[in-house]
């Protein structure tokens, strides 16, 4: 009897520790292989055969198809340049320079990684179509309200996640290195 109780305890502990820890670890963004530049983070190894087993498991659970090294690299940001969580209650300006790439797109998602409905049906900007200043730099404004210039509409009551995808960029072969990415500056909030 005593043996059975002890065995039951051991099995319960094993299941709890084993599955519990696995779920805890796999429910978050990948821990390993992250490369951060300012507010942006990329996982260059994501989806590659060299990726660690945790990254592979997280990828399989999410169902994403990451960009291959020959395609490009994606940078993700949940925070502005000062480290505050991106929120639809504030306006943000994404501005500056992007690393060399033949094409890039900037897409706004909510905190769950879903695109947001908006009256003008715009969920992203592509490098070819943004209005630029004379020196080639640009500013994209994220706001729930209409703003002049490059307006990327967002939901007022959502957390935000930005994804900057660089296509055909030397960063995938030479590494992210000291690449300079756009700043995300917070404007007015309500």
């Amino acid at each position: 009897m005593r043996l059975l109780i002890d065995l039951a305890i051991a099995i319960a502990v094993a299941a709890l520790v084993g599955f519990g820890s696995a779920v805890l670890v796999l429910d978050r963004d990948s821990l390993f292989g992250a490369v951060s530049r300012g507010p942006w983070t990329a996982w260059p190894d994501s989806g590659s055969p060299d990726a660690d087993p945790y990254s592979k498991a997280i990828l399989a659970r999410s169902g994403e198809v990451p960009l291959g090294a020959g395609e490009g690299i994606a940078f993700l940001s949940d925070h502005d340049s000062t480290g505050s969580r991106l929120s639809g209650r504030c306006n943000y300006e994404v501005s500056g320079q992007t690393p060399p790439a033949r094409l890039w797109t900037l897409t706004a998602y909510d905190g769950d990684g879903q695109l947001m409905r908006n009256p003008i049906g715009r969920t992203e900007f592509a490098s070819r179509e943004i209005l630029r200043r004379e020196d080639g730099s640009f500013a994209i404004t994220l706001s729930p309200d209409v703003v002049p210039g490059n307006w990327l509409p967002v939901d007022r009551d959502a957390n935000l996640r930005l994804v900057l995808r660089l296509y055909d960029t030397p960063l995938t072969s030479s590494g992210v290195g000291d690449a300079v990415l756009p700043a995300i500056m917070r404007g007015s909030c309500r």
């Binding site: 051991a10 099995i11 502990v13 094993a14 709890l16 520790v17 084993g18 498991a57």
Partner: peptide
Amino acid sequence: GGIFLGGIIHIAVV
């Protein structure tokens, strides 16, 4: 022993 086994389960699941 259960914790040890849990570690093995963790690795197997991942």
